[in-house]
Simulated assay, not measured.
Amino acid sequence: MSQEMDWDQLDMNPRVIAAIRKANIKSMKEILNHSGADLQRLTQLSSMDVHYLLRAVSGVLRKNSVLTALQLFQDTDHRTSQRQKLSLGCPVLDNLLRGGIPLTGITEIAGESSAGKTQIGLQLCLSVQYPYKYGGLGSGAVYICTEDVFPNKRLQQLIEQQPRLRADVPHDVVQKIKFGNGIFVEHAADLDTFQDCVTKRIHVLLARGMVRLVIVDSIAALFRCEFGAKDSVLRAKYLQAFGAKLHSLSSKFRTPIICINQVTDTMDERGGAVQCSPGPTAKSIAPALGITWSNQLFMRLMTSRTSYLEEAIGGAPHHGRGVLRTLSVIFAPHLPQSLCYYTVNLEGVKGIKVETQT
């Protein structure tokens, strides 16, 4: 702000611009450091001209528009509303999370292989592109792959099924959204590449408003081969640094950060299994990366396959006899521990409403 200013970018009368240059004022900082009386004396402008000058300079420096106290109280502005959530594209799953994924903070989706973690991530990549009134954020998504090839074929299937899956959205709205163009895929197989991706490319996309969702699939893969058993302290420092950076991006741009994580077996001191998820599907597993990573999270969700069939809990006949999955809330400051059932089919991830659910 202290460097020489191009005054022509100010929306001001040329007479005022000429007076500023004649007074040898070279930066906005100089203007803000002077009182109104000093500016009148230096520029020979009227008090009204100085008033408009100060307002124009403030407008250039201010990045966000001002909100009134009434707007904040009513919580209606989508840029600041604490009630605004990112929909998962399914009313049952949204109901479990009281609206969807919070816009600020890191949300982890952990689970075993084939539990549906990536499917949920892909569905969020499409949901984020819908307008605010339909649970989206009206922008694109960044999907960072750390080990596997991006499932582009599956994404295309989901795009084709959007009119059927999102029956709550008018058909013309769905047709207008260019889903494939709104997803940016990045590959980061090591920590250095990941850091470069987050600090540079992702930051640029967020700053330009091209994306409002970041998905990392998976966060554990970045640390699996980089550190040995003796490097726990160094690994913890990296986890804290990456967590802080992701939190900073999320808070600055009000962007959900979704980290997909793997799970590991857990044992207590006696060698017995520890149940790490609530409900009848509890297993002796826990998300990878330990307590250091857990402390970086705002919300942790666990996905798992169950031994139940859809038909056994009253699933609709057209679902068929398939293995169910569960989505469990492990911890979140605004949610109780709870779970719901869901399936993954051609249309996408769909929750199953169960009357006897506890």
Rank of each mutant, 00 (worst) to 15 (best):
S2C: 02
M5F: 05
D6F: 02
D6P: 07
W7R: 02
D8T: 02
L10N: 09
N13P: 04
A19G: 13
N33Y: 12
S35Q: 10
R41T: 15
Q44N: 13
S47Y: 07
H51V: 12
H51Q: 09
H51P: 04
L54F: 09
A56L: 14
V57W: 11
V57G: 11
K63M: 13
A69P: 15
L70D: 04
Q74N: 07
D75P: 03
D77M: 13
H78Q: 13
H78T: 14
T80K: 00
K85M: 11
L86E: 06
V92H: 13
V92T: 05
D94H: 14
L97N: 10
I101G: 00
T104I: 07
T104A: 05
S113I: 09
G116F: 02
Q123Y: 14
L126I: 02
S127L: 05
S127C: 01
P131A: 04
G140N: 09
V142K: 07
I144H: 00
K153Y: 15
L155Y: 06
L155D: 15
Q156S: 05
Q156C: 09
Q157D: 13
E160D: 07
R164N: 05
R166D: 09
V169A: 09
K178I: 04
G182N: 10
V185N: 07
F194K: 04
K200F: 12
L206P: 09
L206W: 02
A207V: 09
V211Y: 03
V216S: 01
D217F: 01
A220H: 01
A221I: 02
L222W: 03
F223A: 01
R224F: 05
K230A: 13
K230V: 06
K230T: 04
S232F: 03
S232P: 10
S232L: 13
Q240K: 08
F253G: 03
R254Y: 02
N261S: 04
V263H: 06
D265S: 06
A273R: 07
A273Q: 10
V274T: 04
S277F: 10
G279N: 10
G279D: 01
P280K: 12
T281N: 14
I291S: 00
R305G: 03
S307H: 10
I313K: 00
I313R: 07
I313S: 06
A316T: 14
V323P: 14
L324C: 00
R325G: 00
H334N: 11
C340K: 07
E347R: 08
G348T: 13
I352N: 08
V354I: 11
